[in-house]
Amino acid sequence: MSVENAPVVDVDEAAIPVEKKMYYRFESNDKKEFRVSELAIQQSETLNRLVEAMGYTSEDVENKPAIAIENIDGKTLKLVFQWCEHHKGEAIPVDDGSVPKIVEIPEFDAKLMDIDNGLLFKLIWAADYLNIVQLLNVSCKKVANMAQGKTPAQLRRVYLLPSDEEDEAAKRAAQEAQDPRAREVEEEFEERKRQGGNSFF
């Protein structure tokens, strides 16, 4: 995808100091390109350390290929960078250790995360991978809110938690997949038990 056609994240240029006005280019695993301000990148510890290590000048940013983020698709990355641009310049929050943690979801974030759970799941993975602390906080808060007022049976459905029986069945299936002979031996053993045989071997 050409840079001209790349979905550029809306940027409030007035809020960016003149000396920080540098935009990095990133490419998702489905080849969508994004331009992101240097200040917005600071919300991601991973990307911030990466661009610092690369030491790009303004010319390098334009002339060199976009930085590829191969683990994240364009749809998710667009949400990530929208979030970063909106919260650029904000301090990275520090956990105060309160139980439960006090996290408020701002209106912008709530709208941004008004998405299906498949995309929310990817957004959380991306926030974790790119180490965006506050995005991880708010997205996980949204997941935690799903538990409010739910019974264990409802939680199993919401969080796709297999029951103990399902876990054990999955474990058996995995073992059998590794050793197909195990099931045959077990069936043979059961058959001999039914026939009243005491000795298996």
Partner: peptide, 28 residues
Amino acid sequence: SPTPKNLPLLRLPFFALLEVFKNLDPNE
């Protein structure tokens, strides 16, 4: 894999799962 209404909690990365737990009170 998640569906529009469900989210596989135990498939989240460790720190995300930890964050979800931190946002739940002891009763939850």
